[in-house]
Structure formats: C-alpha cells, structure tokens
Design a protein around this nucleic acid. Structure first.
Lengths: 358, 358
DNA sequence: CATTGATATGAATCCTACG
DNA sequence: ACGTAGGATTCATATCAAT
C-alpha cells in the first residue's frame, strides 16, 4: 500500500489481481473493465464465401468452466470494490456469453446497478449461417458501490450531447474500424477487441469529473487512457501483454489535448442555493414587489419572510408551491415561473439568484 | 402426470410451480416466461414496470434476499427444463433488476443461450429525477435446452419480415398502449405490464412451428395465448390472479383467426434433398450432358456417378466443389450455379430437384 | 476529381443428414 | 458417437481500383 500518485497516468505491466492489491483503499473515482468474455467457440467459423472468420482466438480468453471464470471475476471485482472511493462507480462490458456471470457476481458482492446500457452496433458481424438473430449489441453494467452510496452522473452534459433529450440506455455506436483501429506493420489488427472511442467518451464524460482517477484493469490498447487524457481525467492502466502496452503508450503520448473539443465542456454548473428571503434582505428585491407570469399577468406579491401572497385569495406559499398552484400541478420550480418588472421590462426572478451569488 | 392434451389451450389457475409439476416430461415446444421480480427498494415482488405481483397470500412478498429470489427462479426453471422437448427452446424477459439472476441461473442449470434480445422501447417512461440514463429497454434471453440440442429458428420468415435483411438482436417495439391495452370498466389498465403483441409475434413466429405447444407460466392477461392462437399454435397458460384469467379468456375467445395474415406464411420450405445421381438414374438428365454457367459458357459435363467433369482439365468433382472452383472460392452451392440446355433454352439445374420430387 | 464497383473484415457460443 | 459429404448462408463500412 502506498500513495496513489505514483500510479497516475501509467500503464502497469502484470497480473491484474496482483497489481490491484497494491492500489490503496478508496482511492479511485471510476473503474472501467472490459474483461475476457469467455467465448465458448469450437472449431472454426467460415464466411459465406468459405474464407475463415478470425474472431477471438487469444489465450487470454480461455477458461475451463463457468466455475473457473466466476472465480476469476470474483477476485478482481472484490479488489475493485475495495479501491473504489465511496462515491465511485464502476462500468463493466460484456456480451451474452459472460454478462450474466458478471451482473450476478456484481450484485452478490454488493454493487448497486444504476443502469444496464446496450451498445447497439449498426455494423456488427452478421450471422453467416442464418441460425439465430444477428448478435448486434454488447451490454454495459454501471454500478455504484452500494445501494445508498453517491455517484457522479453529469445529466445535463449527456442531455446536451443528445440533442437536448434525456440520454437513453441504448447507445448506437459503430464498432471500431478504419483509422481508429490500431494495426501493426503488416496491417493486422493489434487487438482483437479494441473498443470505439465514442463508447469511452460517453462512459467517462457521464460518470466522472475533471481530474478524477479512472482505473482500467484490462487496459488492452488503451482506449480508456486515451479518452481519460482527452477529457482531462487521470488514468491507471493494468495490462499483461507488452505488445498492447507499447501500442497504448504510443497512442496516449500522441494525444494533443488542445484539439479535443470536449475538454472544456462544463454544463454541470448548478444554480446557487439561495433563498428568496436572502435576496430580499440584501435589497435585491423589495418587500411587496409584484410578481408576474411570463405573459405579464400580475399574480402575487413578495412577503418579507420569502413567501409570496396571492393577489386575490391572500394565501401565502413558497414560490414553488404557488407556481404549482397556478399551473394546477403538485410541484413546480418557482424560479423559472415568476417574473418581476424593472423599468417596465419583465425579468425572470431566476436572474436574481445568479446576481446575488456573484 | 398424464397426457398433455387436457392442458391444451387452457388457462390453469394456481401456483406456477405446483402446476408445472403436473405437466408431463418433454411435452412442450416453447416456453415464454415473464416472471415477477424482487425490487429491493420496495421490499416487494414486482413485475417489470412496478406492478405488484399477487402471490399465494404473502408468500411471494417475502423475498428478503437474492437467495430467496434465486431459489424461486431455480424452482420453476428446473420444472420448465423437464417439460421441454429436447428440441424445445425457452424465452424469458426481465429488466436489470432481475435479468442477471435469471441469465446466471439458466446457464447454471444447463440451458444454452442462443441470443439475448433487447426490446428497445421508443416510448419508455423517462427518468424524472435526471439521476441516470433513461431505462429504455428490457432484455429477453433465448435458450435451447442444452449446448448440443436442436431448436427451431424460422430464419427466412424473420428475414422476410425485416425488409429482407437478417433480423437483429435489438427489436424496436413501442410499449403496449391504445386499443391494444386492456382496460377495466372504469378505464384503468387491467395489468400494468401488459406486453405488446408485436413482441410475442416475433418470439412465437421465430421459434415455433404451426401446431406447436407454447407454455407461459406467468400468463397475466394472456398476450402469449392470444398470439399463439392467431398464429395457429397451441398454448398452455398458468396464472394465479383470477381477474387476469378472466380478461385473458375473454381476449382469447374474441380472436378471429381469419384476420391474421401471418397465419399461412410458410417460407421455411427447404429444397428436396436429392442427389444429382438420383436425377440421372431416373433419366431426368442424361450422362455426359453439358453444363453451363448463367452466361451460357460451357464448362463441364455430367458423369453417371453424379459428379461433373471439367471440359478441359478432365477433373471430376461434385457440382458444389466444381462451382466453387470456377468461382475461386472454397465452396458454393452447385444447384444455383449450373445450367443445362433444353431446346436451346438455358435452364437452372435447380429446377430438376423440384421436378424430380413432385 | 467525382463516381462506381469490387474486395476486405469485425468479441461468433454459426449445419445436418446419413452411414 | 463420430466422421464425412452434401449443401445452405452475410451486413455495414472502409479501402482501393477502375472508370
């Protein structure tokens, strides 16, 4: 055990579980894990023209049984949980072959599922033999440390990037091909399962803050580190394969942060928590000030205790309850609803909050 | 134990596990199960959108841990496996709260996952609090009885219904609303998680044959039975709630089979398995007959053993291997490739198979 | 240079009847 | 049970050659 700083923005070579044991307790903000899927394939698969299909034939994906695979998952997931800060969260990715092992074990350990997210692949490999539905997605599971723990979710950022609509649990992202796909000098793919950058953008952007520490126990060719750096986050990578590490390091070193347009994106500023009473007492608005709706209909007046009083019924309520009443709803944000007049111009009372807090 | 026929097209009222025990071994072609799930936040057993599940007087409400819920799943899934024919398959549906329990147990029991299918809901309920991604999908898991067992998949039917493209593991289907949604006399929905008919169409149409027996252990308001009847399949429903049973029975009785255009769809006809040798011996084509490609290029001649001999090299191969050779591929369907001449007209040899088998 | 067409390829639990 | 041979089967996209 020691200080976390010596691990920052490094790729550590070696066995994932052994290295995780060196990381201090509660030191990590986010974990992204893309473990071996334990694809139980036999023989070889031919394309419809008779060519061989090259899927995952790597040694790192071989396990003898579910038991052995489950034990492996328990080992690193337990370590992950230990090193997570109490307000950290964890993402894992898998496919139908392994995701029901992963999700089950994560629940057993005490992780609390926040979402399962479907990575929909528009250009997935077809089912050559026509024997099943084309498997055109993978599944991510996103968990907080336990049921009651806090976590980061940059809701507004994700909404903004989704054409101002609440982002959904299905993400349509092409598989990693073309220039983004790392290839060796002979043109062969370096890693059989390199993840697309867009996938990691969404994961990291939605569930971390700038300068957070993101750990990836199966670093591969470093998509997690690449995006962490582009978004101004710190990463820690763990990987056994030296070829992958070399390629990942080169890839990360080549990043020019200046060109990343998402780096300075900050939509998560929350309005200052100030009461109407504070605003009155500081003289930003006077007692008895008339309040209007956006259509300039005069509705109520300010009371010195921070409530408003209805023009006709003389009922006193908070701005939120009063706005809800006018809208015949059970609640509504009063800051967005009421306006006051200054030199005959209609001004949202919401602006007072920001003025006051300056 | 007894004959299966007494259960056919009936809704049986009572405890799912008890009733399953009465069903004979290996008698069912397909199981569709939409089980209740234990929602930890409420401490109650709920269906996949929040509807309370009505168990045998408090019995189901006592799930206080994953252990108890898992035991419940094991119980009925083991019975399901017993009553499945060796070439049967099973679908289950769930959401992130329970699907990782379900999938894990199904694998542990020995079921073999064929696909997991995502039901993408374009009109899902938004996340009002803005604390997570909108949960806009549910997950179905489709399994054969074990790794080596056969199963029905009507590939061509599904392709035909998907604009002649191979159907995918993500299905975009609106949640059940409008006229399809059953409502009681006061206009309240009868069942809060009634599944859309389109979902069951895809399940049943893709993985059963006409007259197959489909069992649904959590029948609810009978969408499974409704679609089974419309598609000329038999159903067996198990349900505890008498209100649901009454509505389901009414719904099924009202079906007019004539209105279903999918009832007579039969795209799964396979070409007759006949060898070229048979065709020669019956005189449909004569020894030494010249074969051409579709561009009328003379390539090879028929040999009496059912092979063809290349015009120039004199190499003898099966029609498939020879077609592949001409196309510089490792294999190809010879029936589609070769033509012969009759009265100067170029005719596909494929037609001979159908003529012969008439 | 733009357009068209051929070729390559990506986390895959990918055939089946018959002897 | 196992091997063999017949014969059924592919989608989206990037790249590169040809027009």
């Amino acid at each position: 055990m020691g200080n976390i700083s010596k691990f920052l923005n490094k790729i550590i070579c070696g066995d994932c579980i052994k290295i995780l044991k060196d990381i201090p307790d509660k030191s990590i903000n986010l974990i992204f894990a893309d473990p071996p899927y334990f694809m139980q394939t036999e023989g070889q698969l031919l394309r419809t023209n008779g060519d061989k299909f090259y899927g995952v034939e790597d040694e790192w994906d071989k396990f003898s049984s579910f038991k052995e695979y489950d034990d492996f998952l328990y080992s690193w997931l337990l370590e992950c949980r230990r090193i997570m800060r109490d307000d950290a969260s964890i993402w894992v990715i898998g496919s139908f072959q392994n995701i029901y092992r992963l999700g089950n074990i994560m629940q057993n350990i005490g992780f609390w599922i926040l979402n399962d997210v479907i990575w929909s692949k528009p250009n997935a490999v077809p089912n050559f033999a026509g024997t099943r539905y084309q498997n055109s997605h993978e599944t991510l599971i996103w968990c907080s440390k336990d049921k009651k723990s806090k976590y980061t979710f940059n809701y507004k950022t994700m909404k903004h990037l989704n054409e101002d609509k609440q982002d959904k649990s299905i993400w349509n992202i092409p598989i990693c091909i073309g220039n983004e796909r790392l290839k060796d000098s002979s043109g062969k793919k370096v890693h059989s399962t390199q993840k697309p950058e867009k996938l990691l953008y969404k994961v990291i952007l939605s569930s971390t803050k700038p300068n957070d520490i993101i750990l990836d126990p199966f670093f591969g060719t470093g998509t997690t580190g690449t995006i962490a750096k582009k978004l101004g986050r710190n990463f820690i990578g763990i990987e056994q394969n030296e070829v992958y590490i070399k390629e990942a390091q080169k890839r990360i070193d080549n990043i020019n942060i200046e060109t990343s347009d998402l780096y300075n994106l900050s939509l998560e500023v929350k309005p200052p928590r100030i009461s109407l009473k504070d605003i009155i007492s500081k003289g930003y608005i006077k007692n008895d000030e008339p309040f209007y709706n956006k259509n300039e209909v005069y509705l109520c007046n300010v009371v010195s205790n921070g409530y408003v009083i209805d023009r006709i019924s003389k009922e006193e309520l908070s701005i939120h309850k009063m706005a809800a009443k006018y809208l015949n709803k059970s609640n509504h944000n009063g800051w967005d609803y009421f306006y006051y007049k200054k030199n005959d111009a209609l001004i949202s009372i919401n602006e007072l909050r920001y003025e006051y807090s300056k």
